[in-house]
Structure formats: C-alpha cells, structure tokens
C-alpha cells in the first residue's frame, strides 16, 4: 500500500502542480510589467531599466482624465453596489423564497457582457427617446437627456455587473449573524439603526470591505459594458484597448497594462492581508480568553 508520507514525490507533485498553474496564469502579467520597465520596449535584444514609459503615461492628459473617470466610476459603484448587496444579503436571511431570490440576484452573471451591454444601450436609447417625446408633448424640458449615454448609464451597467458579487461576498460573512441577535438588541433598548450598526455590522465588516475592493476592481477592469454605455468620456481600460486596436502595443501600453495589474493586485493583496490579520487576531483573542477562569 502506498504511504503518502513515505513518498515525498506525491507531496512535491502537488506543489509543483500549484506552482505551474499559478505561474502559467500569472507569467504573462509579470512579463508585461517586466517589459514596461525596458527602455527599448517589447522584443528588444537589450534590457535597460527605465521609468520613462510611466513618465510618458502620466504626462498624457488623456490618460490622466481617463484615470480620474475610472476612479469616479469605481467610487460611485462602491457607494451604490455595496449597500445594495448588503440589503440583498439581509433580505436573503429573512426571506422564505431563498432559491428564487438567489437566482434573481445572480442572473446578471449569466448574461454575456456584450449582450447585457448592448441590451442596456438599446434600453437607454429608447428611454431617452421616450423622455424627449414626452418633454416635447408636455412642453417641459428639464428631464431631457436623463438617459443620454454618460456617467449615469455606465454606472448602471457596472452596478448590474457588480451587485451579485457584493451580495455573495457579504452573504458569506453573514453566516454567524442571526435575526434573533437584532431582536435581542432591540429588546435591550436599541433602535433599528443601533442594532444594525453595533450588532450586525461589526460581524460583516470584513465582508463589506472585501466586497468594496472586489467591486472596485471589477469596475476598474470592466471594458465591454463600460465602453458600450459610457458615452463621451473614457476610462483607463477603454483607452488602453482602443490604443491597442488603433496603434498596436507600444512601450506605454505595457506601462498601462502594468499599472492595471499592479493596482488590482495591490487592492486584492491589501484585502487578503487585512482579512488574514483580522482572522488571526480574533483567534488569538479567543484562545487567550478560553484559558480557564481562576476560581
């Protein structure tokens, strides 16, 4: 009979497998970052380290503008999608129709990005036309252009895309929470808001932070929906991709790619470190307190 412990190769193979998978997935990303620091760009024989491509990038007003639009969109998506995910998770805990509710909540994930994006595009165009027609018939114009493509429509696309993720991430951290805890707090004299803020929220804080980071990355990296719905302005990703299509890869495209990867990894890394540190602290506290009480 084989003894796993006596056979170091089985164990090593597991690690090798893991490293190969991660390596295969991440190698192109790291290679992009590597090239972005080469003065001579992709395919050159010699490698001379430089920050120049990044300097070029940050001197480009179009890039700076797109970065700020990206940041606004990301912030607005966090501020709407995360509370919506939280409310959905709270509702899920209470409802009796869990399967139906989850299916509805996750349905935006089942629709391909380009279908959802173009469907929304058509929807907004029609809404816009309807509102203009309504405005003309009523002789009022203040709601003209509410649904013209722009920040708001791009935001709606991103919310639809990110709410399911926020919902699931928060729901996972809600496992310890029970409705009785809120009721107990209420019966101790807490208002509905106090019960939420002091009893429910501390238990799901990690979930809310992770969901925020997740939502930010999703909105930051989103191309299809945003490019269909954004209207006039550009986000970082749409600039990067149109750049690639129109002029091909150049030194600054690699720098842009590098920037996207670094920001994404930094956000995810920060969340991971925070969550792990928090988990470890909780466990340490629990162990300290579990020491027998002196009689």
């Amino acid at each position: 009979m084989m003894d796993t412990y006596a056979n170091p190769w089985a164990y090593r193979a597991q690690w090798a497998y893991l490293l190969i998978i991660v390596g295969a997935l991440m190698a192109p990303v790291f290679y992009t970052i590597y090239i972005s620091f080469n003065e001579h760009g992709f395919g050159a024989q010699i490698y001379d380290f430089t920050w120049d491509w990044y300097v070029v990038l940050f001197r480009n007003q179009q890039i700076i503008d797109s970065l700020s639009w990206t940041a606004y969109l990301g912030a607005a998506t966090i501020l709407t999608a995360v509370p919506m995910g939280l409310i959905a998770a709270k509702y899920y805990k209470r409802t009796r129709h869990k399967v139906v509710f989850v299916t509805l909540m996750l349905s935006p994930l089942f629709v391909p990005a380009d279908i959802l994006g173009s469907a929304l595009l058509v929807y907004f165009k029609n809404l816009n036309r309807a509102f203009e027609w309504l405005g003309d018939s009523l002789g009022v114009t203040w709601f003209y252009g509410w649904f013209e493509l722009g920040f708001f429509t791009a935001l709606v696309g991103l919310i639809l895309w990110t709410v399911p993720y926020a919902f699931v991430v928060i729901l996972i951290t809600m496992s310890r929470y029970r409705v009785q805890q809120t009721e107990a707090a209420r019966s101790c004299g807490a208002t509905a808001w106090q019960a939420f803020w002091q009893i429910e929220f501390p238990q799901i804080r990690v979930g809310v932070f992770s969901a925020s980071a997740f939502v930010f990355i999703l909105s930051f990296n989103e191309y299809t929906r945003t490019s269909l719905l954004k209207g006039g302005f550009d986000t970082f990703t749409t600039v990067l991709i149109s750049h690639m299509f129109n002029t091909g890869m150049s030194g600054d495209s690699y720098a842009m790619g590098g920037l996207v990867s670094v920001i994404s990894m930094a956000v995810i890394g920060a969340v991971l470190v925070y969550t792990l540190a928090k988990a470890e602290r909780l466990e340490r506290e629990a162990r300290a307190k579990a020491e027998p009480v002196a009689a």
């Binding site: 009785q180 805890q181 707090a185 019966s187």
Partner: peptide, 11 residues
C-alpha cells in the same frame, strides 16, 4: 425584554 431559544447572544 426577551430571552430567545438560541443564537441570540452577540457573538
């Protein structure tokens, strides 16, 4: 004030 069957302590 109310005492519940279970799961009501603030964990």
């Amino acid at each position: 004030s109310m005492v519940f069957q279970s799961y009501a302590l603030f964990p």
